[in-house]
Amino acid sequence: MMKKYEGKTVIKLRVNGQDHEVAARPADILLDVLRQQLGLTAAKPGCLNGDCGACTVIVDGWPIKSCLMLAVEAEGHDILTLEGLGGRAAAQKAFVAANSFQCGYCTSGFLMVCHALQNHYSELPEEYVIEEWLQANLCRCTSYQELRRAVRLMYEQTPPSGSPRDSRPPATNVFPAGKNPL
């Protein structure tokens, strides 16, 4: 059944395991509602055209560009943003360990792609699969080698467990010995 929305309507969004009611116009994109109404600003606007992937969130387990999804389309789906990972996901630890970002603006989007990848493939997939998934996003700072390395490191870690913050490393962490950890 198609639902018809007119003007500002209250819709229910399930984000990071919590239910929220927000007032959205039918034309409002999920990204703007997440950022402006729920204060979840990890997903970033980069092009609002589906080209850069900085706004990627996970919807029902799949990476979705939240600039290409209307907020009303997200009703009834399970939305996960970077904030929902706390600090416990293997992808987050791997990104820090592999020095996978510089300015950090695209990081949220790449992290969500990697996190979803790990949920779909329990073992490290082949390189072309990794490329296929990560090609949805753009990074202007790194050489991409660091992101490949992060995916490998992500699979070398034990699955997430425990409370969101207890697995953070100490504040000063040094990269593995040697000049080039790649």
Binding site: R35, Q36, G39, L40, T41, A42, A43, K44, P45, T81, L82, E83, L85, G86, G87, Q92, F95, V96, N99, F101, G104, Y105, T107, S108, L111, R168, T172, N173, V174, F175, K179, P181
Partner: peptide, 26 residues
């Protein structure tokens, strides 16, 4: 002479890092 990680690394992988347009706009 040490490969110290970025000071803001954990802010950037948790979404807590704030860029200009992340500040409240209400």
């Amino acid at each position: 002479d040490k490969s110290i990680q970025r000071r803001e690394a954990w802010d950037k992988v948790t979404g807590q890092a704030q860029y200009c347009d992340d500040l409240p706009a209400a």
